[in-house]
Amino acid sequence: MVRNNINDLIAFLAVARERSFTRAAAKIGISQSALSHTIRNLEKRLGVRLLTRTTRAVSPTEAGEKLLLGIGPHFDEIEVQLDALNELKDTPSGTIRINAPDYAISCVIWPKLQDFLLAYPDVKIELMLDNGLSDIVTERYDAGVRMGEQLARDMISVRISPDFRFAVVGSVSYFSRNPLPLSPQDLTSHTCINYRFPTSGSLYAWEFEDDGKDIKVRVDGQVAFNNIFHVLDAAIAGHGLAYVPEEIALPHIGSGDLVRVLEKWSPYWDGFYLYYPNRHHASPAFRALTEALRHR
């Protein structure tokens, strides 16, 4: 009976935290129908409704929220203690979940991870693309990746990339129809490909620097994306100017597919950092991963 209650409570925590039966079922590795049946049985056994279900969302009731706040921290502590047992193992093992922007995953993390995965076959890495600024504690990630200027002060951080900058680029076909911009202000008369932040929903204002002074230009165009690689693809296809990380633009500039402009106005920004809460992460697997990603 106690064992069944524990399993059912774990199922409840997954749904309450994910706010979705679909995501919760995938997380704990059971079918949605089995998960729904488990929650119904738990509610029946307790004699109280724990979750409010609609066609579009799932949320805890007052009783469900009370149960979530009451038992959640205890299950989290159990998980921490189980993870700590990995220190007694000779070989690092376990699963590490990280959320990071698309560019950081492709150009910073993944190139370093390939050797790490070969060296530590018992460690599993889950990389979740997140171009927003999600709360890694609330979303139950082990770590996140952000640029230095976006780090929260209460987080431990490890630098994993050098400083980098963006490049304004356009295709040869675009510039055959339009003049080269000579200053950032000229961009307002060009068709540009916008980037929309997933979290705030706002469009990115292109950032430049002139003699130590910051310049922000709001551009306009026909298309906008929330994925930086889609922005790059649209520029290559000739749909306007794009402002993308220099590293992903350089191969296309070298091949002649893209032309770079306004280079002297593009500032360098603080690089990417792996960050995590200071409550745990002393496991051999996490320490090994941190060292593998650390910028040297």
Rank of each mutant, 00 (worst) to 15 (best):
G70W: 05
K216W: 00
K66F: 04
E207Q: 15
N86R: 04
S134P: 04
W110T: 11
D115A: 15
Y275T: 08
S31V: 05
W265G: 12
F286V: 02
K213V: 13
F175Y: 13
P245G: 10
Y195N: 01
V259Q: 13
S176F: 03
R23K: 06
S59W: 12
V2L: 11
R196L: 10
E18M: 11
K112N: 14
L68W: 10
I78L: 08
A249R: 04
Q222K: 12
S255C: 04
Q222V: 01
R49F: 01
R53E: 11
S36W: 00
M155Q: 10
G64I: 09
L180P: 04
A34H: 12
P92C: 06
Q81E: 15
F175R: 06
C192D: 00
Q150E: 04
V58K: 05
H281E: 00
Y268A: 12
T22H: 12
E126M: 08
D270C: 00
Q222P: 00
L133K: 09
N227Q: 04
A100G: 02
R296F: 02
L88T: 02
H280Y: 02
K44Q: 13
A292V: 11
D257H: 02
L68I: 01
I109R: 00
L289K: 13
K89S: 08
L35G: 02
L13Y: 07
P162T: 03
S157Q: 13
F197N: 15
A25Y: 03
